[in-house]
């Protein structure tokens, strides 16, 4: 069997195996949401400012909120079984359409943030490991500690103050310049400029995580016998560092990188809100405020799929990086 077919089969098998997990996540979330006070009808009534007992009852009946909880869950699941994520009364469109509209923005942000985190984190970690105990190591250590402990939204706001307000280099929010009429390359550049600050904010915590992981991994690999063999060949420190040490040190780092994808998605809720980025995170946030549970469940469902797919991709990446791992 060719390896491409084996990989495809593995993907399909793992994807099917993930279905019960996703189902469990949906049901759990459904009950968790029931614990929150109030429902969509309360929010709508509160906004309109003039609601009677009668109109509230009608609204609840229309939204299906008057049914017992178990019946609501049953309705949701049977919808799901037919491939529908339900309808959002607030946006007046199917949840699936709403999510698909927002998904690309979040995926782009996610990729850029992960890219920043990986490249900067691995670079900083390698510099730390190669200078272990000396001043570059100490300085970066302090920096990573800061990134670890300072909340993301605060850093985001500070970046806006510095780069958008004081320096005026980058836009403070949104996904593109409104009514700019940009096309082609200009449009792409404009979008990238809008992405830099939110992606950086989202990645800062993970830069710290990867830097520390890489530092530990590089230091461990540097002690291994095969590194001594590489030196005994007369290879330069640079070649030994990249070809022999870093390549091996990336194995544990990628494993843990996969585990953090869920965390990055969670961070997206805050960052997208701070930067008014039209993605899934902000959609989820709005859905909570409006008790629009169909939307929220849809976002959560998709997020769990994203995390599962990302982990499968990490597994494949690992098998590619490490010949000792066979794709099963």
């Amino acid at each position: 069997m060719t390896s491409a077919r084996r990989v495809l089969k593995a993907l399909v098998r793992n994807g099917l195996a993930a279905i019960p997990t996703v189902l469990a996540i949906v049901i759990l979330n459904f009950f968790l949401l029931q614990l929150a006070p109030g429902d969509a009808a309360d929010v709508i009534a509160g906004e309109s400012g003039a609601a009677t007992e009668e109109s509230m009852r009608q609204l609840r009946a229309r939204l299906g909120l008057d049914l017992p909880v178990v019946a609501q869950l049953q309705a949701y699941l049977s919808n799901l079984a037919q491939g529908s994520l339900g309808f959002s009364p607030r946006y007046n469109m199917p949840v699936a359409d709403l999510i698909l509209q927002r998904l690309p923005q979040t995926l782009m942000l996610l990729w850029m943030a992960l890219g920043f985190a990986f490249v900067l984190g691995v670079t900083l970690g390698t510099v730390m490991a190669l200078n272990a105990g000396r001043w570059p190591d100490r300085m970066i250590s302090v920096l990573t500690l800061l990134l670890y402990s300072v909340p993301g939204f605060w850093i985001g706001l500070m970046l806006i103050v510095l780069f958008s307000i004081k320096l005026g280099w980058l836009p403070s929010g949104g996904a593109e310049t409104i009514a700019s009429g940009f096309t082609g390359l200009d449009l792409v550049l404009d979008r990238l400029r809008h992405m830099i600050l939110p992606a950086l904010t989202l990645s800062l915590f993970f830069i710290a995580v990867y830097a520390r992981l890489t530092r530990a991994a590089v230091m461990e690999v540097a002690e291994q016998d095969f590194v001594r063999t590489a030196r005994a060949k007369g290879l330069s420190g640079f070649t030994v560092g990249f070809r022999h040490i870093l390549r091996n040190a990336l194995l544990p780092v990628t494993t843990l990188a996969g585990m953090h994808i869920g965390g990055v998605l969670g961070g997206a809720v805050v960052v997208e809100t701070v930067f008014s980025w039209p993605g899934l995170g902000r959609l989820a946030f709005e859905a909570v405020l409006r008790r629009d549970y169909n939307v929220l469940l849809g976002v959560l469902l998709l997020s769990s799929f994203l995390v599962i797919i990302a982990n499968m991709m990490v597994d494949l990446l690992q098998a590619w990086l490490d010949p000792r791992i066979e794709v099963r």
Binding site: R228, A230, P323
Partner: peptide
């Protein structure tokens, strides 16, 4: 000037 080591199991790079 060349050298070989005691531990053949760990003296080669596993990913190359």
């Amino acid at each position: 000037l060349a050298m070989i080591f005691q531990e053949p199991m760990t003296s080669l790079n596993p990913v190359l």
